[in-house]
C-alpha cells in the first residue's frame, strides 16, 4: 500500500477530496450532502494524506492544530445565531440575505449556511485530531 505510486498520487487525491468535500458541503441544502458528510470526506482525505506522507506533513498542511479547527467550528456555528438576536427572532432562526453581485445576479448568504460550515469545521477538526494523535501515539 505504501508504494511509490500511492505516495505520489495521494497528495493530489487529497486535494481533490477536500475540494469535493467543500462541494458536498455547499450543495447540502438542496441536494444530498451537508456539513457532516463534507466534513467526513475531508477527514478521510486527511487520513489518506497522513498514511501516505506522515503525520507531520498533515500538520504542516493544516497549519492550525485540528482541535483548534473543531473549536472554531463550534464557535462559528454558535455565532451564526447572533443575527437572530439582532433581528429579535429565536436563537438560530434562519436568516437570509441577498447580496448583489453587480451583474444583476444575487448571492444567497444565510445563517444556516454559516452554521453548516461550522459543522464541517468541527467534524474535520475533531476526527483529524483523533486520527493524527493515534497515528503518532507511539
Amino acid at each position: 500500500m505504501n508504494t511509490v505510486i500511492f505516495r505520489t498520487i495521494a497528495p493530489a487525491l487529497t486535494a481533490l477530496m477536500v475540494l469535493f468535500s467543500l462541494f458536498v458541503l455547499l450543495r447540502g441544502h438542496n441536494e444530498p450532502g451537508g456539513g457532516f458528510i463534507g466534513g467526513l470526506i475531508a477527514a478521510s482525505a486527511m487520513a489518506l494524506y497522513g498514511i501516505s506522507s506522515g503525520v507531520q506533513a498533515v500538520r504542516r498542511a493544516l497549519y492550525f492544530h485540528p482541535i483548534t479547527m473543531a473549536g472554531f467550528g463550534v464557535l462559528l456555528a454558535a455565532a451564526s445565531g447572533i443575527p437572530s438576536y439582532i433581528n429579535q427572532v429565536p436563537f438560530l432562526s434562519g436568516i437570509w440575505w441577498k447580496l448583489p453581485l453587480g451583474n444583476g445576479q444575487y448571492f444567497d448568504l444565510s445563517t444556516p449556511m454559516i452554521f453548516d460550515i461550522g459543522v464541517w469545521f468541527v467534524v474535520v477538526g475533531a476526527i483529524t485530531a483523533i486520527m493524527l494523535t493515534l497515528e503518532e501515539a507511539d
Partner: peptide
C-alpha cells in the same frame, strides 16, 4: 434537502 434543513435550520 429536508434532512439537511432539519439539521441546520
Amino acid at each position: 434537502n429536508i434532512v439537511n434543513v432539519i439539521l441546520v435550520d
